[in-house]
Design a protein around this nucleic acid. Sequence first.
DNA 1: ACTTGACTTAGAGTTAACTTTAAGTGTTAT
DNA 2: ATAACACTTAAAGTTAACTCTAAGTCAAGT
Lengths: 123, 123
Amino acid sequence: MTIAEVSKRYDISPDTLRYYERVGLIPPVPRNANGIRNYDEASCSWIELIKCFRSAGVQVEALIEYRQLYEQGDSTLYARKQLLLGQRELLRERISELNASLEKLDKKLKWYDDVISESKKEC
Amino acid sequence: MTIAEVSKRYDISPDTLRYYERVGLIPPVPRNANGIRNYDEASCSWIELIKCFRSAGVQVEALIEYRQLYEQGDSTLYARKQLLLGQRELLRERISELNASLEKLDKKLKWYDDVISESKKEC
DNA sequence: ACTTGACTTAGAGTTAACTTTAAGTGTTAT
DNA sequence: ATAACACTTAAAGTTAACTCTAAGTCAAGT
């Protein structure tokens, strides 16, 4: 799979894919004889994972750490799990914060509905 | 209310409060004879609104637009409501995206639980 | 042979949203 | 009165996460 195909498949720009690899967020992608990236299934799995985590607001820095733990093998299984547990907690907090904001926004919208129907009466 | 008090009350740094005012995200805050900000209830309401929206991921740019509509008076009630409706939609999408990520994260964690309990058996 | 187009790199540039700095004013405590 | 402290401004600096640029390689089409 070329970088263009992967880019299309996951809707991540080629620049960003190269950036992720460059900063060590994913392991090096296999290359062909001309040095051109040839993404295999392992690479794609990484990208899927990264995409999910990034959209959940996990920082690039934390993902680099995760990958470094992965590289160190099975001895880091527990550490990796802890890292993910921490991120899950953050994610939950973020979600409940957003839900609180959504409620406030709903209230504000209700206020607009009331005011607008008021002014209609007066017209 | 001084900027320090407002900063404490809403947990927003004085720098950020000044920044919000400077870029036009909130109307000018009243000043005393020495040019020192003296936040009144109206200013606080704005800050509360901004804080809620920012934590919901609404961009500063959109909030400036909202405030500009507000300044133009009642004729913009409908436009403001539309702006908020749009932002609510974005917020809902963001929340369901995060919930999807949370599920994936849960699956990954379950995988870790399985693998770790496996390796315990072997020891 | 030449152009087109996708790929490569290192490194510079961009964007949003602050955050810090420098230089200064005014109020309060000793 | 002098030091400490909270405030003021404009403008420069920072940070994360890309995104673009320049300069180049390589394979395929005309």
